[in-house]
Every structure is written in structure tokens, then in C-alpha cells.
Design a protein around this nucleic acid. Structure first.
Lengths: 236, 236
DNA sequence: GATAACTATTAGTAGTATAAATACAGGAAG
DNA sequence: CTTCCTGTATTTATACTACTAATAGTTATC
């Protein structure tokens, strides 16, 4: 469900493969990676294709190339942690408890503030987009449809802030919600709680009530956090 | 001051040049860019160098290449707005008022929350790093030294949250502070206000008082916002 | 109107030359 | 004998050229 990633171009495959290996820890930081010629041969691609991939990975902060020394994997602190690919790789390899906790913390920081900003500045069109997403949640008959609509709701809200820097953080929210969908126990009672919460936020944005929107979103995130907690403890 | 960007490799120069042109709007969205061969010739580089640069720009969401159709500039909403390069390009070309406003809003959302998180979780080493930065601010004798120390303070605080997703947002804070240094009237009285504010935040983190840290940081950002406002109105 | 051929453009490969950074050897000075 | 410098040799990424393959839009043909 979380992988509509099309590996069309060859160098994209190389990027994905190397990126995954690095983020998962298979390729340890410090030093590593055989030299271009060898690595290209080993992956069955030309050196140019490999180099194009390496330039991208280098832009994401995962690797660093220098003459004579070769190419080495950089430490995690240098990675572009907010990059959508990096998030996806982390998520695919280690949806560990501490990482989920960090994602939830990001939601707690970003989303209530975004809801408040949206309540202040949303245009009628943006409001309509939120409403459309909400209606889709209401009409959803299966888990997947609900997940899609939920994501659309949160994205529409971020767009309604009219601050594209905030909007770009959707990659984080998306990843957080994605792991939530996997980790939380989702059933009818869940939806019965979540749906009115989303409605309250929408209403607050529509009525230009920033603080109401903030509190509503805060509650929503807090609930989903405790939902994950319950699931984690139940799993033991 | 803000440009220690080394343009060592050739393809990096191409990335910078094209990136700047796109973000500044010289190259309009929708469609554009001559075909590879022409563009390479026009920039006096080989096609391979150009292609490596295009792959990186494509990863940043600035352009999109398709066979036969050619390469087109994507709309701003698809850009990786949180990417350090993109921020730098935006900042270099258009430090327009609305962009500054968005940067300040990001600070207001991120930094108080980060201060609170740091107060909860900072290790002794991380606390020492914050203290070191603060001491450097206190000892600074010129504007540049102060700016460097100030940046170090905010970075150390973000690191002390022990949430690398938050830490990665330093690129935004850095850009915001950079424009602040340029746009605000900086004089002795500024520092006399800012220094104790930083100390309060540091103390709150040291004493593990999240709410005190949050409020202190909130005040700090609010003050710098009004500082910019004053400057902007004074400039008219 | 559907299908096939044509064509322009990016995607990908191969080979070669250049430049930079390191490591090592050799020597000079303490 | 040790330490520090210096020059050179080597390894590796960097960069270019020329070529082939795939793809998608256009045109022509039936």
C-alpha cells in the first residue's frame, strides 16, 4: 500500500537500492563502497548510470565522494532526514519504536500549528478541498479508501496554511500516518472517534477559529499516539 | 557571509546555476529548457555533466524529464522547499516580505517546541554544547562572531532534542536567522536584549523545565519578528 | 479511423583522458 | 634515531566524446 514507487529509470533503481542499503545500515557509515568501476560492474549498470545515482545520494547527504579516497557513507546526522525517499527508506527498514515516537512528536508540533494557520488564512477553494477529503472519509467503505481520504485531509489542511514550507512537511506527516495505519488497531470504533474529530477541525478552520482548530488537532494527534501505544503494549 | 558554498565540481556549478535560475523565476514553470545537447553546449559542459546535474535537480523536484517531450520546469508546489539549496536560492533571489514572514512562522512553530523537547531530553554533553555556544555569544566582539555563535546556539538546541527530524529543520532556522541578520537593525541594545533571552532558554533546558524553555523561546522569536517589522516599516 | 512508419529527445553504454588527493619513499634537520 | 618536510607515484573520481536503445508524439497510409 505504501509503495507506489515506480522504479522506471535505471538510475532510479540504483538510487533506491543503494539508499535502502545505506539507511538500513547494511552499508555502515565511516567508509565503504567499492570504487565506481567495481560497484557499477557488481550492480550490472554502466559507470555513468551509477554516477548519476551517486550524485543524487550525495545531494541527499547519504554519501560523500572524494578523489583518491573513494566514496564513503556519511553519518546519519548528515542525512537529509526530511527527504521523502530517506523517510521511506527508514520506514521500510526500521519502523522501530523510537522512530515512530519521533514521527508522532513531529505531528504534535506541526499539525496543531498548521490547523491554526489554516483557520487564519484558508481560501474558500482550500476549504472546499478539505471538505471534499472529509466527505471521502465519511463515505469510505474500506480501510484503504479511508487511508487515502485521511491523507488527503491532512494534505489539504497543510496546503491551506498558504505556507509552502509547512506544506513540504507533508512528507513527514505522510510517513507518520503510513506507519500509524500499519501499527494501530483499526476498527469501526476507531473511525467513530476519528471522524467527528476531523469534522471539528474542519469546522474550526471554516469558522476561522485558530485556537479551536489547534486544540482539535492536538486532541486528534494525542489520540492516535495513545492508539499506537495501546497496540504496542498489546503486542507484548 | 552566507556563502561559503564551494563550487568545486563542474556539475555542482551547473546545479547551482540552473537551480538559481529556476527558483528565481528566470526559467518559467510549465515548459522550458532546450534539449540536452543544446543546453550543454550553451553552458560549455559535456552532456554527461549536465545530465548529472539534471538528475539532482529532478530529485529536488525542480524539473521533470521525459523522453521525446524534453525537460520541463515543475511548479513551485512540487519543489523540495525544505532542501537547503532550494532555501538558499529562494533567499538569494527573493528575500521578499512574504517569504520572510513564512520563515518567521516556521521559527515560531519549531523552536519553542524544540526548546521544550530539549529541556526534557538533553544529555549533559548536548547541554554543554549549548553552553559553549552561549559563551561564544557573550564573548563575541563583532557582528560576524555573534552571528556564528547564534547559529551554533540554535543548532545545538535542535540537536539536544534528540529527534533528528527536528534537527534537520535547522536548514530552515539557518535561513531564517540569515535573513534576520541582513534585515534587522543590529546594535548593542539588540544584543543586550537577546543575550539574557538566550540565557533563560539555556537555564530552562539545564533545569529540565520544558514549559519555561518553550515560553522563553517563544518570546525570543516574537522579539526578532517585531525587530524585522520595525526595520521594514523604518525602511519605507 | 485505425494502424504503421517516422522522428525527435531522453535514457543508457563504452572508452579515454585529466586532475586531484593520498600514501609512500627519501632526505634533511633536530 | 626520530621527526618533519618534500617530491613523486599511484589510485580514484571527474569530465568528455561518440555511440546505441527506448519511447512518445506526429504524420502518413491504408
Amino acid at each position: 500500500m505504501v509503495k507506489p514507487i515506480v522504479m522506471r529509470s535505471l538510475h532510479n533503481q540504483v538510487i533506491q537500492e543503494l539508499g535502502r542499503q545505506i539507511v538500513s545500515g547494511e552499508l555502515e557509515a565511516g567508509k565503504g563502497l567499492p570504487r565506481e568501476e567495481l560497484l557499477a560492474e557488481r550492480m550490472n549498470v554502466s559507470r555513468t548510470a551509477l554516477r548519476e545515482a551517486m550524485k543524487v545520494l550525495s545531494a541527499k547527504g547519504l554519501i560523500e565522494s572524494r578523489q583518491k579516497t573513494g566514496t564513503r557513507v556519511r553519518e546519519a546526522s548528515h542525512w537529509n532526514q526530511l527527504d521523502a525517499d530517506v523517510l521511506a527508506w527508514r520506514c521500510a527498514s526500521m519502523p522501530t519504536e523510537s522512530f515512530v515516537e519521533k514521527l508522532v512528536e513531529m505531528r504534535e508540533i506541526i499539525e496543531p500549528a498548521a490547523a491554526a494557520a489554516a483557520a487564519r488564512r484558508a481560501t474558500p477553494e482550500q476549504l472546499a478541498a478539505i471538505k471534499t477529503a472529509y466527505d471521502a472519509m465519511e463515505a469510505a467503505e474500506d480501510l484503504d479508501a479511508w487511508a487515502v481520504a485521511d491523507l488527503a485531509f491532512h494534505e489539504a489542511m497543510l496546503r491551506a496554511t498558504n505556507n509552502e514550507l509547512l506544506t513540504s512537511l507533508f512528507s513527514v506527516i505522510e510517513t507518520a500516518l503510513g506507519t500509524y495505519f500499519v501499527m494501530s488497531a483499526r476498527n469501526a470504533s476507531n473511525f467513530n472517534v476519528a471522524l467527528p474529530q476531523h469534522f471539528k477541525v474542519y469546522e474550526a478552520i471554516r469558522r476561522h477559529q485558530p485556537e479551536v482548530a489547534r486544540q482539535g488537532m492536538l486532541k486528534m494527534v494525542a489520540d492516535s499516539r495513545s492508539n499506537i501505544r495501546r497496540q504496542a503494549t498489546a503486542g507484548r
